[in-house]
Simulated assay, not measured.
Amino acid sequence: MSSLHVSKVRKAYGSTEILREINIDVEDGDFLVLVGPSGCGKSTLLSLIAGLDTLSGGEIRIGNDKVNDLHPSERDIAMVFQSYALYPNMSVGQNISFGLEMRKVSKPDREKAVQDAARLLQIEHLLDRRPGQLSGGQRQRVAMGRALVRHPKIFLFDEPLSNLDAKLRVDMRTEIKKLHQRLGATIVYVTHDQIEAMTLATRIAVMKGGVLQQLGTPAEVYNTPANTFVATFMGSPSMNLIPARIERMNGALHLQVGEGQKAIDVELPPQPAAVERYIGEKVIAGLRPEAIGVENERATSALRTVPVTINVLEPTGPDTLAVLDLGGIEVSARLGADMPHAPGEPCELRVALSKLVLFDTDTEVRIH
């Protein structure tokens, strides 16, 4: 396995910029997920790493080797595609071993590699079948097996689960995570599904419009988003973005939400020094749905009780999604399954301000 270093990488077609100075470092054994909406440039970046497209600027290194001008076959990478790309006239075993055969690997070594990969992926009983006799999940395992036998420096996955149904996607996510844990492989994985990103990655790169918005661990991206785009793209339901104002009262900072009779004033727990600059100014207050209506929270000094009106309740089984009126502003909350209140009913809920994130109104960048 190996590290990957993407430095100031650009890609343009004529005057149209697809990628704008992307900088990403992936350590040996990392599972990096490139995530973002369609057209953000994540698949283009994967193609540049694979050597399937040429850079307009910048540098890509695999380990200590600069690979900008290397052919894909010389980069020692293995790619798993969305479409599986299996040969229909070959058996599963032949599909897995075909790349090794092309590299003149001896037959005994090929057979051992195929058996090892099949055992790891639990497809030993499928080796004599043709791809047309397999389910979508089984085909995906075969495609992964073909990549595994190569023992490449880096695995590249291009939306490999998007063709599967919802339950199978969940099952295959688990298998891919197990695979990474067993092998300690370096993986770069492209998806538009933020749930896949959160569950699989050791590090996430969030992209939008060809620009890297944030690079960090799943916890960093989820709890301390760099800007309002990351805040709303990561998480379902997404983070509430609430217009508010910072004021100082009786020596403490307060957050004022809404206006008129519905206005709410909440004393803030200690804040970063940067927040002091916003006294008397408007900000965007970010709160995850699970931070509203908390029942168990250790940081009691950061708990505040606020009045709300329940507009909509959506029971999901383990919890209840709710749409609330908070200071005249509609917000989402993730409440307990045994929520005792009914739609239209005013009540008081506890809010965990330890999870509050503040953003600049003009730049939409996190204040920290």
Rank of each mutant, 00 (worst) to 15 (best):
S332N: 14
V142Q: 03
V331F: 03
E101F: 05
G93K: 11
T363H: 12
L4M: 07
L179Y: 06
V67P: 04
L321H: 15
A185G: 08
P88K: 06
N23W: 07
R139K: 13
D28S: 13
I24F: 04
D109Q: 15
P270T: 06
P237R: 08
E124R: 10
P37L: 06
S56T: 13
E314H: 14
M198H: 05
H192G: 01
R103F: 08
Q181T: 10
K153N: 13
E17L: 13
E17I: 13
M198A: 09
D171Q: 15
D25G: 06
V67H: 06
R334F: 05
S73Q: 14
D65P: 02
P243S: 04
K355H: 14
L179V: 04
N95P: 06
R203C: 02
D338N: 15
Q261N: 14
R288V: 04
Q133E: 15
V257G: 00
N311Q: 15
N223S: 14
G328L: 07
V67K: 07
T44G: 00
G317L: 11
D116A: 14
P225N: 05
R110S: 03
R182E: 15
V142P: 04
V221K: 00
P225D: 03
R10T: 10
V357N: 01
V357T: 10
T199G: 09
S106I: 02
N23D: 15
P243R: 00
N23L: 08
Y222F: 15
H254R: 12
D69R: 10
D338Y: 13
L156Q: 05
T361M: 10
I329W: 00
T16V: 15
A333M: 05
I367P: 04
T309F: 03
A219S: 14
P343R: 11
V114I: 13
K282F: 09
A205V: 03
G210P: 01
L120E: 10
D338W: 09
I292T: 06
P272M: 11
A285V: 01
V306H: 02
Q181F: 07
K8C: 09
E175N: 06
T224W: 03
S15K: 14
N64S: 14
E27S: 12
K104L: 09
L168M: 14
V312Q: 12
Q133G: 04
R169C: 08
L19A: 05
D319C: 11
A352E: 06
E111H: 10
